[in-house]
Design a protein around this nucleic acid. Structure first.
Lengths: 217, 217, 217, 217
DNA sequence: TCCTAACCGAGACGGTACGTCCTGTCTTATG
DNA sequence: CATAAGACAGGACGTACCGTCTCGGTTAGGA
């Protein structure tokens, strides 16, 4: 998912890549990443742990940072976005899932480190981080909102999904890394905050509807 | 401000530290940091640029990361927290200020990198990052809220300041690094969101007051 | 000439080797060798330049060093050993030819590098270098001497051809690589030296003949 | 002797180089060189064997090849050039010494490899090889000849020392590497050859003196 | 006409070493 | 005691090759 899929059928020439290798490397990278963080993760170490030559790493990823992105993406692939029946429940689940991921210092730290790297290279690393990582977290929120719109709970104009995603993910991440653990109380507080937003907007919508009723120009 | 002040009066023995040196190093560090980011900032380079021996750096900061924290703190010290007369205006100013700082990729990137480092060492680096950096950003929000409470606009129970600070800073940071620029529209959207929260909570408070009036059990 | 000829008649089964390939590889190898020297000549580069897969190289030569020997041998095959009518003239021509070859830094350097490799593996590489390279240079001197013996100019006992060959080739090579160019003066000096040897030996032989005449015991 | 001597007294600033280090590296390099030859000698291996960081090697020698030159020079420094009383005896000793050194495949091979490298870089490596290595071998012959001139055995015009040095060293080297061992017979043959040269030249000189006597124009 | 063995290209693979850069520590002479 | 200078051990980077291998596909002669 993080490397372009080998095109259809007409096999590329040359010896095909060892299937097991990518998995071994990914597993090793995730482990080293969790142990040491992005800065102290070393290609040498990952290669050794995966039982693979360093050149094999560089054949597949152009540099350490891309491998790190891939490894974190593999962790993010564990994200589950189930349907809980209502926006409130979905949001609670989504925020909880984000908190679960980012609360782990190794995952949260890795994500922050890669965002930092993105700042230095918005088109290269940055693009990959966005495509492979941020969108996965974004989906936690976006999917819930889409479902809610489908259900008729809210209307699309009421919410800017991108903004909401940045608010949720950013808040949780910053809490996890800067302030401390995004504990139960924090998650509850964040949900309450979003609930109030929803309340205000639904009410405003209601009022506008009433006005139209009363004064059908 | 980021290093413990030299103890009181009784001048320590030996040659005193060169006053100009610290500023030269700080300036050099900020510049290198902006150019290269935390990961690629090197003590060697900073020392050369400051015209100072590497040992002088290590005499004042125990390691590269502490120097980086110091350099970013120096940047954050430019933050201004003026009184704009109302919570709304103060919040708008605070969010704008945060956006201004974090929108600069070098500052935003550095902050993220140091948060990432915090994850690996919550008690050492983490404590310093919290004390020197996060609190400065936190103050952008906290000061506004405190003033607003003093003015009687809102009541303390209505808002969890820590939560609000994480929401504001985290949202802006994530937007800056992951999604793109925290542009005018984003800032407006975030303010609208918070305004709705305030609306909902003020209204709820109002209703509770009415109920008490109507039925003073 | 440097690879064992495909055995007699009963054609080996399977697709026959592409005729043009060997020449393309040899040409590419000679060129890369001239550009970079033995140490920096790479199979990868030769294959690319010859428009051939690396495996094709290894199918024909067991390792880089054997290919290098082959390539240098191809250069040495340009040697011409004409009959100039007298030992003196033949020697002058032979030394000149040796100087011409070894003066080119790429050829001289390659020969020295392969001699160095010989020292590490006298039976493998060493044997091939002797058979393919040293004998070719040796022939420059040996042929002249043989012709001279045939002509009756000198007698076989007067000269150790192997020694003479080492003296001529070694002197010219060392001059070319260590001291500088084996220029005209050097070649003249070497010839004068050998002429003096011939003078001394002919005179001694003459005297012995006189003695026998005078005192036919 | 192969690195520029630290200038006079006014000690250079900074921590002085560890005295023992250079010797440890030199010893390790000589050993690895003898075991593996120039091509397979690795900085990694030398550093490990010397108990020293690789960076220390590169601080003192710009690349592997320079270290190899230094190591071979250290071996060549064992050369002893005693006075044996006559040109014949000195030459015999000199040739024997050259044969002793170059007969060892590791030394002979290393010298050839470095000459090969010289061909690729006459001004850099080449200059160092000439200054550090070739001149040492050259001295074996030159010193003998100088002494002989001082003794009055021969006259300076009779011999081109540079030529003679190339002949002796080149012959012995080529014999050692290409043909086989420069055994006793070879050394004897080479000496006989040079003796004949001396004979011819002394005789010619004698004849010229006689002519002048007989016909003092 | 097929079969089979060897050829060929492409490129993955495990290794090894290179030379560079940086960290944090140290040793020295000088202020 | 601070400072400049720079040596030092250690470690990782990313690059370049080596020689081996595994594919799909090609090209003969012999069955």
């Amino acid at each position: 998912m993080t490397t372009r899929p080998r095109s259809g059928r007409p096999r590329r020439p040359g010896r095909p890549r060892e299937e097991a290798t990518e998995q071994a490397i990914t597993a090793a990278a995730r482990q080293v990443l969790a142990d040491k963080g992005v800065a102290r993760m070393s290609m040498e170490h990952v290669a050794a742990k995966a039982g693979v030559a360093k050149s094999t790493l560089y054949r597949r990823w152009p540099s350490k940072i891309e491998l790190a992105v891939h490894a974190v993406a593999a962790t993010f692939d564990e994200i589950e976005i189930d349907d809980h029946g209502s926006l409130a429940a979905d949001m609670r689940a989504g925020i909880g899932e984000a908190a679960r991921l980012l609360r782990d210092p190794s995952t949260g730290g890795a994500y922050a480190a890669l965002l930092a790297e993105s700042a230095r290279d918005p088109d290269g690393v940055g693009r990959q981080v966005r495509e492979s990582l941020s969108t996965r977290l974004h989906a936690l929120v976006a999917t819930s909102v889409e479902r809610s719109i489908d259900r008729g709970e809210i209307r699309r104009e009421m919410i800017d999904v991108d903004l909401l995603a940045d608010v949720v993910v950013g808040s949780v991440m910053h809490r996890a890394l800067a302030t401390g653990e995004p504990d139960e109380a924090f998650v509850d507080g964040l949900i309450a905050l979003l609930a109030d937003v929803a309340y205000a907007r639904l009410r405003r919508q209601q009022r506008e509807a009433d006005d139209e009723d009363a004064d059908p120009t």
